[in-house]
Design a protein around this nucleic acid. Structure first.
Lengths: 198, 198
DNA sequence: CCGAAATTAGGTCAATTGTCCTATTCTGTC
DNA sequence: GACAGAATAGGACAATTGACCTAATTTCGG
């Protein structure tokens, strides 16, 4: 079946793009991983950029699905945000080896002046607006987007340094700090709404 | 003169590696930028990795020089840390276009499984130990390295997102937050040392 | 079972890559 | 001013790249 082969190609490309980068991954690499001939590629993807498109769309779909799963899990928005923060630990090993899939792809495409850079940024937007929604539900109002960007940036920085230093302890420590930060934000907000002196 | 040509090559390579990445920059690109023949390269650098070495050493030297300049500027350690934070604004335009030179190089080399990855990480270490020293002088003792890594990570995350979204307002806002965070840390420390009730 | 369409394999293509060689030009010393 | 060594230019080299084509095979509706 064609759709299945296509799916296998995108899946392999996704992994290779993550592990070695978009530019450093060749058609031959993907073909060898999937176990099909190079020529077969052209039937499913006309250009390398098409494969990138497929990979980004796959990531978008997977991410959306993950975020939806967290949203219907019934827990409160704060718990959902903690789920986001804990991706750093869940995917800790991969992050220490290859960095954050979203951030590193976005950076690479920016340097390549690639048309798909905005598509990669859409992946960030997915997380951003999801986080923003959670903060809004917690009652942060107009500050929600700022807070979403803040925590998104924090996790990006943690991923970059954990990768550069291959440091697991740092990663865990910063995750704790981010959770503490979240608790403080929520405490500040409730204090502001119920200003009971002393 | 040979040393001058070599310097021009490294300088051009430094810029190109930053703007387009290490792998995406070819010998021909550098030669064209410097304005010398490709063959002339081999006289100064045997392999591409040699050029990378030269670029990293150049960055190490420049960074060390910058940090030294900040250190003898006579201001207090807190002011020096603020100087570090404000690189994000000083280099804001470049960062929005190409990301952080240190972080993006480190990420790329990690994906390429390149031997020089540890050399690139040494650039991070330069900032890390410098920041650590400033925190120690402020009296943070054993916590100094954690704080240094924290602020290093924050700036990395800010650079990544400012690049992904090409967002200058976010960059400025996060710089403000980092400065506030620094002030809070210092305030907490003095409170701890002078526990005068009320 | 047939034949058309979808799928796959294998190979070709020009362009580019990093590497390397040789011939020429420049530079400084006796 | 001659000459050795450094510096430069220009090209050759095999290997790899993304892209493309054609022929063989598979799949499936009638």
């Amino acid at each position: 079946m064609a759709a299945e082969t296509r799916e296998r190609i995108v899946e392999a490309a996704d992994l290779l793009f993550y592990q070695h980068g978009f530019e450093a991954t060749s058609f031959a690499d993907i073909a060898a991983t999937v176990g099909i001939s190079r020529g077969n590629f052209y039937h499913h993807f006309k250009t390398k950029d098409d494969i990138l498109d497929g990979v980004i769309n796959r990531r978008l779909a997977n991410t959306e699905q993950m975020l939806d799963r967290w949203e219907i899990a019934g827990s409160d928005p704060a718990e959902r945000i903690r789920s986001f923060i804990h991706i750093l630990i869940v995917n800790g090993e991969k992050i220490r080896k290859y960095g954050c899939p979203v951030g590193t792809l976005s950076s690479e495409l920016a340097k390549l002046n690639h048309t798909a850079k905005s598509d990669a940024a859409a992946l960030f937007t997915l997380f951003r607006s999801w986080l923003c929604r959670q903060f809004e539900r917690l009652g942060f109002g107009d500050k929600s987007d700022e807070l979403a960007m803040h925590i998104l940036g924090r996790s990006q920085g943690v991923a970059t340094l954990a990768n550069a230093f291959d440091d697991d302890r740092f990663l865990h420590h910063e995750v704790d700090l981010m959770c503490t930060w979240l608790d403080d934000q929520i405490a500040d907000l409730t204090n502001k709404n119920n200003p009971d002196r002393e």
